[in-house]
Write a protein that binds this DNA or RNA. Structure first.
Lengths: 365, 365
DNA sequence: CGTATGAGATAATACGCATGAACGGAGAGA
DNA sequence: TCTCTCCGTTCATGCGTATTATCTCATACG
C-alpha cells in the first residue's frame, strides 16, 4: 500500500517561534527529548537522579546556551505545574484612581511569590471589558496557572464555586465565609477593634459611640462585633453602647447630634474605615463644626487607615491593616493548596496604631 | 504482527477533573470532536461557517448542558501562542516605597493589554532574590511569554541583546537608543521642554537658566536639548543661555549664586525632574533663602512632575509625563512585534501644565 | 445514468512536555 | 560463557484543542 497522504494540521512554518523546544535542546546535547525532560523537571520524590552527572551537565549546558524555557501551557497540559500563580481582580488591578487599588496587597504578593519561586500572572480584562470579559467563562482563563488569587468585592459566586469543585486551587483575599469551600485570608478586624476600644477604656472613657456606614460587608460587621466585645471586655455597660449606622454619615452625622451625645456623657468616637472614608470624614467635620477640641474634649479613633487625601493631617489613633502581610499570607496559603496540602491561616492580625487623636476624657464639671 | 504492548503514560487517573472535554460534548451531540472545536472556536476570518445551523445548535446545547469550558492550556498549546505579555522590572515591580514605583505605567499597561486580549506575567525575583534571580540566565524566564516589556534603568545589555537576537519580541519602557535593535517607547522630553521654554519666552522672559543634575541619562540630555532649542525657537540668544549642572544641587545651588544670576538679568529658572527631585528641591530652597518671590520676581518651572512629598504645595508650571499612555504605547508596540509587524511609535508627547509658579518677569528698575 | 459540484462533517494529525514501560549495556554471579 | 540485575536512556504515548486534507453524501448538470 502506497503511503497515502495524511490529513491533519500542517507542520509549523519553519520555526515560527524562536523559542527553543526540548527537542532542540536534546539534539544539541545529543540525547533524547525524554532525557531533557527528566533533567529539567524537578523530581518531586527527591529520588536518586536516574540521569548520569555527565548527561545532566550536557543537557543543562545545551539548555542554557539555547535559552530554553519550558512552555507553561504544555507543562500544565501534561498534568504538571508551571510555577505560575494567577492574580485576578474584579476591578482593574491598577485603577487610575490610586485610592482603592490593590497595590499594598501586591507588594506582599509579589514578595512572597518570589520567595516561593512563583511568577505571577495578572489576568486582565476583568473590568475593562477587554480579553475575555464577555462570557461567563471569563474566569476560566485562570486555569492556565497552578492556582489563583482573587481580590475584590463583587465575586461571581457561581464561577468561583465551579473552579473549586473542579479542584482548582483558589484563595480569596478578604473574608468569604459564605462561599463554602473557598479558601480565604482576611484581617482580624474583631481583635483589632477590641484593642482600640480597650485603649480608650484604659484612658478612662466610659461612653463610646461607633460610627459605621450602612453596609453589610463582613468587614463592617466584624468591627461592630469587636466594638461590642471590646466594651464588654473592659467591663463597660454594653447596654448603653451606641452604634450609629448611616448610609451617608457626612450628611446625617450633624454637630447637633454629636453635641447631644457628649451631653449624655459620650467622650469617645470610633469610625470604621471604608472605601470612601465617609464615616471618618463625617465624624471629623461634625466634631469641627461642633467646635469640639480633639483630644481634649473628645477622643477619636479610626478603625483602619485614613484615606490618602487626608495624608496631610495627623494620623489618628486606630489600627493598620497589614495589607502586604495579607497578600503574603494569601500567597502562602495558595502555594500550600497547589502543593496539595490543606493548610489554612485565614486571619492576619492588625497592628494597633497610637495617635494624637485620643487622650483621657475631659473632667466633667 | 501481534498487538505489542504499548509503552507510554498511564491513562489519566480516574478523571482527575470532572471537567467535561470536547470529546464528551461531541459524544452527547452525536458528532466528532473536530466539529465541536469548529463550533466553539471563534473563526477569525469571519469565513462562512462550514457547520450547519442544526449541528451548531446541537453542539451548543450539549456544551451548555455539560457546562463545558475550554481548557486554556490546551488551547494555547495548540495555537502556539499563549496571549501572555511579560513585564520585567529590574527592581521590585511593587516596591514598598511607593514613590518610585512603576504603578502609573502599569495602569496603562494593564488597560491596553486587556484591550488587546493579553494577560500579563510579572516576573518576580528580579530584586528580591527569589525565583530565578541567581544565574545570568535569569532573564530567559521571560521567554515564557509571547513578548516582554522591560522597565528600569540598570538593564543588562548583553542579556537583552541575546533575547533580541533570538527574535524574541522586546520593548523597553524608556529610551534605549544605545541598544541596537531594542525597541522602546519614551516621552518626548525635547518637545515638552521646548514648550515650557516657549511659554516663558512668551511671558517676556529673556534670560533663563536650566538646573540639571550631573547625570548622563538620555532623559537629562533631552531636556537640555529641548531647552536650547526652545531658546533658539523663541529668538533668544542661545549664547547667553546658562545650564547649571551639579551633582548635588541642594548644596551647590546657593542663594548667592541665584542672586548673582538675577542681578545679571535672569528672570526664570527651569529644573529637570529626577528620581530624587534634587534639582527642583535645590532650586526651591535657594529661591526661598534668597528671599525671592515667585512668581513676582522669578518664574520657576519644573520639567516633569513634582516629587510626591511636595504634593501639598502648589503644582509648578511644567509638563506631565503621560505615564499611563507610555505604558499603553509600549504594550501596543509589543503586541505589534509579537504579531510580526514592524510598527514603531517611540515618542509619546507630554502635556504642558500651566501653573502658578510662572508669570511675567518683573519690571527692572 | 455518470459525473462534477459543494456543503458538511470527520479523521488524522500537531502543539510541547511528562512519564510508564521497554530496551540496551555493563558488571556480577553461576 | 551465559543468564540475571541494575542503571541509564529512549520509546511511545497522552493531555485537550486547533487545523486541514480528505471523505460522504446530496443535488445539479450534461
Amino acid at each position: 500500500m502506497e503511503p497515502r497522504k495524511r490529513p491533519g494540521r500542517t507542520p509549523a512554518p519553519t520555526g515560527r517561534t524562536a523559542r527553543p523546544r526540548q527537542a532542540e535542546v536534546a539534539r544539541l546535547a545529543g540525547v533524547s527529548q525524554a532525557t531533557v525532560s527528566l533533567v529539567l523537571s524537578p523530581k518531586p520524590g527527591g529520588r536518586g537522579r536516574i540521569i548520569s552527572e555527565e548527561t545532566r551537565r550536557r543537557v543543562l549546558e545545551a539548555a542554557r546556551s539555547l535559552g530554553y524555557v519550558p512552555d507553561p501551557a504544555a507543562r500544565r497540559l501534561a498534568a504538571a505545574r508551571n510555577n505560575l500563580l494567577g492574580v485576578f481582580s474584579f476591578t482593574a488591578t491598577f485603577p487610575t484612581d490610586v485610592q482603592h487599588s490593590y497595590y499594598p496587597f501586591l507588594v506582599g504578593v509579589e514578595c512572597e511569590a518570589a520567595a516561593l519561586g512563583y511568577d505571577l500572572v495578572l489576568f486582565t480584562g476583568s473590568s475593562t471589558g477587554g480579553a475575555g470579559a464577555a462570557g461567563p467563562d471569563a474566569l476560566s482563563r485562570v486555569r492556565l496557572a497552578d492556582g489563583c488569587l482573587f481580590m475584590g468585592r463583587q465575586t461571581p459566586r457561581a464561577e468561583l464555586r465551579r473552579l473549586v469543585e473542579d479542584g482548582f486551587p483558589i484563595v480569596h483575599l478578604g473574608r468569604r465565609e459564605e462561599l463554602e469551600g473557598v479558601a480565604w485570608v482576611g484581617a482580624d478586624y474583631v481583635e483589632a477593634t477590641r484593642e482600640v476600644v480597650g485603649h480608650l477604656a484604659e484612658l478612662g472613657h466610659r461612653r463610646i459611640v461607633l460610627i459605621r456606614e450602612d453596609d453589610d460587608a463582613p468587614a463592617s460587621a466584624d468591627r461592630q462585633r469587636g466594638f461590642l466585645e471590646g466594651l464588654e471586655a473592659a467591663g463597660l455597660p454594653v447596654g448603653t453602647a451606641t452604634v450609629f449606622r448611616s448610609a451617608d454619615p457626612q450628611r446625617e452625622l450633624t454637630p447637633e447630634r454629636l453635641r447631644a451625645w457628649t451631653d449624655e456623657g459620650v467622650t469617645a468616637f470610633v469610625a470604621e474605615e471604608t472605601d470612601t472614608g465617609a464615616a471618618w470624614r463625617g465624624l471629623l467635620s461634625a466634631v469641627r463644626e461642633a467646635g469640639l477640641d480633639c483630644p481634649a474634649e473628645v477622643s477619636l479613633a479610626l478603625l483602619g487607615s485614613p484615606p490618602s487625601d487626608l495624608a496631610g493631617e495627623p494620623v489618628p489613633t486606630g489600627f493598620d491593616i497589614p495589607r502586604p502581610q495579607l497578600g503574603a499570607a494569601a500567597v502562602r496559603l495558595l502555594a500550600a493548596l497547589v502543593a496539595g496540602e490543606e493548610a489554612r491561616e485565614p486571619l492576619v492580625g492588625c497592628a494597633f496604631r497610637p495617635g494624637p487623636t485620643t487622650g483621657p476624657p475631659p473632667v466633667r464639671p
